[in-house]
Design a protein around this nucleic acid. Structure first.
Length: 262
DNA sequence: ATGCCTGTTCTACC
DNA sequence: CGGTAGAACAGGCA
């Protein structure tokens, strides 16, 4: 999916529409609503409201909507193949692991506001929409991750470092690609128990996470495939010359360099 | 036909 | 109860 970098681009695409009145709010696939079982009709409260502001916490895009007597939030998640389009145009043309095709029939949500049409297009339907999402379930955003947050997470945990970084309740916004790249840059074995992470490694990791997100953000996102060009068989580590390897950690495909990641 | 995948969530098992 | 691992979800592609 879009990791936090792509979601931030989606959020900014809505900037021109802030302050607009919501004319239509249509959910085109009932299963897209979370928690499961929530009737799509609850989102009827959005109609006639004003999109006052947006927010992003990790990979969650939050729309603040105000009505004369109430205000509430709508949370959008993009799963693995979700994109946000404004009048048919998306900040992201193509996502890796999405098919090259682009079908309006994959729209799961359409919002008409300010004369524009915003749609959440998600071929695989692993995204979702939630009314008043509980953002306290998310850890601090990856853009502001610190060594002290990582050290606190290490306390009383046995998970792998990679598993911790993928856990949105500990750090919000990192996906499989950003985690692999950050660990590779920091020289840390993805399988290592978080409990073995000392202050020095925690600081190095926090620095590499922030700089990876920052650099890729300025280059256009982690979706382009150029972020971590070592995710293929036979590639050579550009840090130490070792042979990149592909293993499974925390249930995910993991590319790493056994020579310098320890 | 089979297995794979940049995510989240539910269940089962310590 | 809390933490963790694995399956499930979904759909197109190699």
């Amino acid at each position: 999916m879009p990791e936090l970098i792509e979601v931030e681009q989606y959020r900014r695409a809505l900037d021109p529409l802030l302050g607009s009145s919501i004319e239509t709010f249509e959910i085109l696939h009932p299963n897209f609503v979370r928690p499961s079982g929530t009737p799509a009709q609850v989102f009827g409260v959005a109609i006639g409201g004003i999109l006052r502001s947006t927010d992003r916490i990790g990979k969650l895009l939050v729309l603040h909507i105000v009505q004369p007597r109430e205000e509430f939030e709508v949370g959008l998640r993009f799963g693995m193949t979700g994109r946000l389009l404004v009048d048919g145009l998306s900040p992201i043309d193509k996502l890796e692991y999405a098919s090259g095709r682009d079908e309006p029939s994959w729209d799961r949500l359409r919002i008409g506001l300010g004369g524009s049409l915003v749609s959440l297009r998600d071929q695989r339907r692993l995204g979702s929409i939630e009314l008043d999402p509980d953002t306290s379930l998310l850890g601090p955003d990856a853009t502001v991750i610190s060594d002290s947050i990582l050290m606190a997470a290490a306390h009383a945990r046995t998970k792998s470092v990679k598993g911790v970084l993928l856990d949105q309740a500990i750090v919000a916004g990192l996906g499989n690609l950003l985690v692999d790249e950050s660990l590779w840059r920091a020289g840390i074995d993805p399988r290592r128990s978080i409990a073995t992470l000392g202050p020095h490694a925690a600081e190095a990791l926090a620095i590499e996470i922030r700089s990876t997100v920052d650099e890729l953000g300025r280059r256009g996102g982690s979706h382009t495939g150029d972020s971590f060009p070592l995710r293929s068989a036979g590639s050579v580590c550009s840090i130490c010359g070792g042979a990149m390897q592909n293993i499974s950690v925390a249930g995910r495909t993991t590319w790493w360099c056994p020579d310098h990641q320890r």
